[in-house]
């Protein structure tokens, strides 16, 4: 039994130590906003926050989490960065199919947490790990800048 703090709620889960957080969140807890994309941390669709920092949940064994706080896309809107990112995402119509966007938003929120006014280099560093096959990248960059401005 592992104890996980997800979105402010404590969950007791019966899962092996090596099980990635992704599948615990999706298959056991039932929060399906966090997506499976590659399983090798190369697409970012599974991004969540661990103590506010972006982490790829598909390669994060639950044994490594301990009592750190997990935030998923379903609750990121409760943070101020989350709110402004979500709003900018909608205002700029960033999304197409939307499958990767939970991860994009989680990475973007984590970026704003570290760099409230990120430059292009910092955006590239934080966001290059998130693949979008629909090609929403130009709008993601623009929306991060809008969110940073409005969050200021």
């Amino acid at each position: 039994m592992a104890t996980l703090n997800i979105n402010g709620t404590t969950h007791q889960v019966d899962a092996p130590d090596d099980m990635p957080l992704l599948w615990v969140i999706r298959d056991i807890i039932g929060l399906t906003g966090t997506k499976f994309g590659c399983g090798i941390a190369q697409c970012g669709a599974c991004t969540v926050h661990i103590d506010g920092q972006a982490a790829r949940s598909c390669v994060l064994p639950i044994s490594a989490i301990g009592d750190k706080k997990i935030t998923t896309i379903e609750a990121v809107g409760e943070t101020s960065a989350g709110k402004s990112i979500q709003k900018a995402w909608l205002d700029l119509e960033v999304m197409q199919c939307g499958y990767c966007q939970s991860g994009q938003i989680m990475s973007a929120c984590s970026l704003l947490g570290q760099h409230p006014h990120p430059n292009d280099e910092q955006i590239d560093t934080a966001m290059a790990g998130n693949i979008c096959r629909c090609g929403t990248y130009p709008r993601i960059r623009a929306a991060i800048k809008v969110a940073a401005k409005e969050g200021a």
Binding site: Q42, V59, P61, G129
Partner: peptide
């Protein structure tokens, strides 16, 4: 920068990974 994009998710920024899995 490269490590952050390609390696850190498994091996961690602090280089400790998650033994014995990663």
């Amino acid at each position: 920068k490269l490590y952050q994009q390609y390696c850190a998710a498994c091996h961690s920024q602090n280089g400790q990974g998650v033994a014995p899995y990663l």
